[in-house]
Amino acid sequence: MKYNFSNHRFTTLMVLLFFISFTGFGQENVAKKFKMLYKFNTIKQADNTRLLEVSFIARNKKNKKDKPPVFDAEIQFYNTTETEDILLGTAKTDDTGHASITVPASHKYTLDAAGYINLSAKFKGTDQLKRKSKKIQVKDIFLELDLKEIDSVKTVIVKAFTIDSLGVKIKANNVDVIISIGAMISKMKIEEATLKNGLYTFEFPTDIPGNIAQNIDIYTTIEDHDEYGNVIQKSNEKWGVYDSKELDSKNTLWSKYAPLWMYILLGVLLGGIWINFIYTLFQLKTIKKEGLTFEAENIPKT
């Protein structure tokens, strides 16, 4: 990957800014206190689409920990050629300072003489922020991931090739690939290899759980390659050994419902006691009734 700095207006801008602030007009512009970290990257994704992404973050020159993202900056993504820049799309940076577009797989890029795709991401600049531009050169590579059971051995086959201008497949050599499996938060590397003659094969481990359906997402990636940049390929196979244990739905001390005997014991205890209370009150009622009879018989009415 090649980076192209285009800061030619930097000096002019700085001089300008200096004067503005000196005369007291530029109080609001704090941008000059920051160094701009402007990064451009591309990933060729599993569905052969290409993700272009810019990370645009300011960093306080005095306090390096203070890194506010640049928000709402319009980034234009181009396929640059010798003659013109073909606009691929524009996007605005979000609250994390990132802007990205996805170029569909069907897009035909204009290549340069050496067969590279030249991509650039430009920020036009504003009165306060200087313009930024970054360039990347990548060669389009096709990464294939086959999962096959050969003689009941789970085999992962990674293939990579490029297509030359005549449409002929050329096997990619000496390309480092990483094979990983998908997990909830991140991918786990299971194999690292260099493709020989466009091919690498290995046995898949037999003890990976996978998800509840025993499915495993398997990825192969080329990372940061000088020619091909970042490429990712993905496949899925039911190769997991997930042991879908029965959910412990027993009534325990820490579940919502208690063990049965607790309800029984409590019910018996409380029931017994309260029945006795009620019986006592009932007896009191009888005493009252008897009292009324007694009063009617023995106490003369006044």
């Binding site: 009191l284 008897e290 009292g291 007694f294």
Partner: peptide, 24 residues
């Protein structure tokens, strides 16, 4: 006093429930 007049029947009844309640 709920009409308690120390009649033998009342006495017996009250004594009985008081005894159970004291155990309880």
């Amino acid at each position: 006093a709920i009409g308690y007049h120390h009649t033998p029947s009342q006495k017996k009844r009250l004594h009985k429930i008081t005894k159970t309640m004291s155990a309880m």
